[in-house]
Structures are given as structure tokens and as C-alpha cells.
Design a protein around this nucleic acid. Structure first.
Lengths: 207, 207
DNA sequence: GACCGGATCCCCCAAAAGGGGCAGGAATGA
DNA sequence: TCATTCCTGCCCCTTTTGGGGGATCCGGTC
């Protein structure tokens, strides 16, 4: 490697930022050039410092990691975003890659794996945590097979709306809503709308 | 303080353990005497090392932090458990204190606050993150007003069970289940069982 | 042009859910 | 002892949901 890899750390938990800094300080060819604790300042800092890699948490207050990733890949395409997130947010992988992330690694990964992932994405390659592969095909095409409209309706169901209320909100017929809900249940293999919402919340398909 | 405070770090994410170790290494009167990455080894290690304070994550694979806290307070009452968890799990505060935790601090807290919390619980006092106070009265008495039976039923609703199925599972009448569900809806101020499950999942009342 | 997926809407019908009131028994605690 | 809470069960009734069958229209794609 001709020169150091420059890194930006983005996480709302100070203890995680400290841990990352400590991990990365052990690697002589990696240099941390900044830290941010929310999406907006992450974007701003990336524009100024233009790091090789942005290590980005997904769940953050304010602008979340996915939105920040979209803005960074649009404004600073030479900075590679490496999503760094917790076990229970695995299904965000699909949306993360859509948003333009170059890599996705779990917080529970040992730090050697993290270093390898940073090197990979800095070289322009992709990196996805191997632990995600099994659940990838399961949960991913679960989420993916839902259309935008179906996700929208599922979100409203999670807020306790009945078919009639959803119909009113979306200016469509109640029969149409029923039709969509039937499709959602079939696709998620759920018995009831309640089950579908529970699945979707657990898989982070909706919020 | 006559002698060092001994600490045990429990978190399933290596990066968090590293961050904690780094934070605590800056405080000369605090000594880390062990690390665990799951509840079971946390209990075992606490019994062997008998630290003054156990810094415990709540969400962990296998035995979770709450169960580990219960076992530690039962077996090693002289070790104080300080729960250390993320923003979105605030409603766990009530159950954490019930489980015997001496303190509760958010991962987003600055490390000076963390040090103060460690000192407090080591001295035998309680510590609750001030940031939790506003949401305490809101979400806490939402969760708290649910009885154990109601939480149990709510959990089954989240798995997509109908009233009849819940009744079969719990060996009670369907009418009783309907009665419980009505109470759940009223207490959570939910319009439908789907809404109730969504609220409960978001507030971490159920999993 | 033919085809397909997505969104929209309609019918029918059985089952489930929701809302109201009521009440007995057990356990807890004032 | 009395009050309270919780779990349990039952009645009534209306509304909602879920499952099945269709249909039309539109924007892509082959």
C-alpha cells in the first residue's frame, strides 16, 4: 500500500468510537482523520476531509446511516462507506448496499475482520461480513419481494390503522387495501397482519 | 477511596469492550479484572473474580443481560451490576432494576458520566442516567401497568397467534384471552392488537 | 404487438377481532 | 376483615379481517 488509509468514524455512542479508534490505532497503515456522532455531521466532515473509508453506524438519532450513505456516495464518491452495525439489523444489508455502501460488517466481528474489511473497501472492492450470508437469502428476498406500496401499507398497519383508515389515508378503496394486505401476508408467510408487522419490525423492513 | 474499584466488562461486541477498556484505563482508580461476551460466562466470571462492579450490556445472544443480572445479584450480591445499554432500550430500565441492577447508563453517555456511575454503584449507591428521567414516567408506566400474564399474551400475539391459538397454548378459554387483549389495548392505548404489538416491540416490552 | 407485474377495484363469505357489561375465586396487602 | 388486583369465564353485538374468485389499466420488457 503506497500510503495510509484515511478513515472517518461515525457512531452515536462514544464508547464505540473509542473502541474503534483503539482498534485502528493498532494498524499502522490506517489513520483516523475524524469522528462524527450523527449523519449530518458525517456528511459535512466527509466533504471536508475526503477520507478513503467512512465507518458508519446505521442506527443514529437524526439523519440515519442509510441517508448519510446516500448523500456521501452522491457528493463524495471517492469515499467508500463501510456500514458497521449490530446483529439484529442484518436485513438492512440490502438497503445499505442500495444506498451505495461498499461494505457491511457486524459490530460483533473481531477486529482483524474489521481491518480486512477496511482494506478491501479502501481498495475499491466490496466487503460483506460472511456471517451475513446465511441470513442474506432468507430475510433479504423477504424484504425485497415487497413492493414500495406494500411496504407503505405495512407501515400504516404498524401504526394501528384498519383497512378503512389506510384507504382513507392513501385515497384508495378499502378493497385495494385488502388486496395489498393479502399479498403482504402471502409474501411474508404471515398468518395475520399482526404477525406481518412483527416480522417486519424485527427485520427492520419498517420502523 | 481506599483501594481500586474492580470492574468486569460484559458486552457481545468486541469494539464496545475495547472502548470500555480504553475509557476505564484512563481512570487510575479503576481496574478491569475481566471481560465476558455473553450472560453465562459473565455469571461464571463474576463468581470467580468477585468484581466491585459488573458493567453489563442488556442485549446479548444466549442468556441476556437481565437474566445474568438476576443470577449475579442472587449469587454474588456484593458485586453491583451497572446496566449499560443503547438509547432505544430505555423501557428496559424498569425490568433492569427489578432484576437487581444497581445502576443504568446509556451507551451514548460521555465517559466522565460513565466513570461517575461506576463510582456511585461501587459505593453502594444507585445510579440512573439523567437522560432517562423524562422517558421514565412515559414508557415505564406503560410497560409497568401490563401484568405478567398480559405480557405473555402480547408476546404470543406478536408471533401471529389468534385468540383461539393463544387460548390453546395457555390452556385457558378464548373468552379469557379476549378479555386480556381488551385490557392490553386499553393500557397501551392501542387501537388494534397489531398496533399494540408494534408499540410493544418498539418499547422493547416484548421481543 | 404480446406479455407481465403492479396498482387499482369489485363480488361473496366465514372467521376473527373488538367493545360493552358482568362476575366468581385467589392472592395480596392495608 | 375489607379492599384491591389479577386471572378467569360468559353473554351480547358490530366491525374487521382473511381467503377465494375475478376484473381493468398502465408502464415496462421481450
Amino acid at each position: 500500500m503506497p500510503q495510509d488509509i484515511t478513515c472517518l468514524i461515525v457512531d452515536d455512542h462514544e464508547v464505540v468510537r473509542e473502541g474503534l479508534r483503539l482498534s485502528l490505532s493498532r494498524a499502522s497503515h490506517i489513520r483516523v482523520v475524524g469522528e462524527a456522532s450523527d449523519g449530518a455531521s458525517a456528511v459535512a466532515l466527509t466533504e471536508r476531509r475526503r477520507p478513503n473509508v467512512v465507518i458508519m453506524d446505521v442506527r443514529m438519532p437524526g439523519m440515519d446511516g442509510l441517508q448519510a450513505t446516500r448523500e456521501i456516495t452522491a457528493k463524495v464518491p471517492e469515499s467508500a462507506v463501510l456500514l458497521f452495525t449490530a446483529h439484529n439489523e442484518r436485513s438492512l444489508l440490502g438497503r445499505g448496499l442500495e444506498a451505495g455502501a461498499r461494505g457491511y460488517i457486524l459490530k460483533e466481528a473481531p477486529h482483524q475482520t474489521l481491518l480486512r474489511a477496511i482494506e478491501k473497501v479502501a481498495e475499491g472492492e466490496g466487503y460483506v461480513d460472511p456471517a451475513l450470508m446465511p441470513s442474506f437469502l432468507n430475510s433479504r428476498d423477504k424484504e425485497d419481494m415487497l413492493t414500495a406500496r406494500e411496504r407503505e401499507i405495512l407501515q400504516l398497519l404498524a401504526d394501528g390503522m384498519s383497512n378503512v383508515e389506510v384507504a382513507g389515508k392513501l385515497f384508495i378503496s378499502q378493497e385495494t387495501v385488502k388486496s395489498h394486505v393479502r399479498h403482504i401476508l402471502a409474501k411474508l408467510e404471515a398468518d395475520t397482519r399482526t404477525h406481518a408487522v412483527a416480522i417486519a419490525l424485527r427485520e427492520s423492513i419498517i420502523d
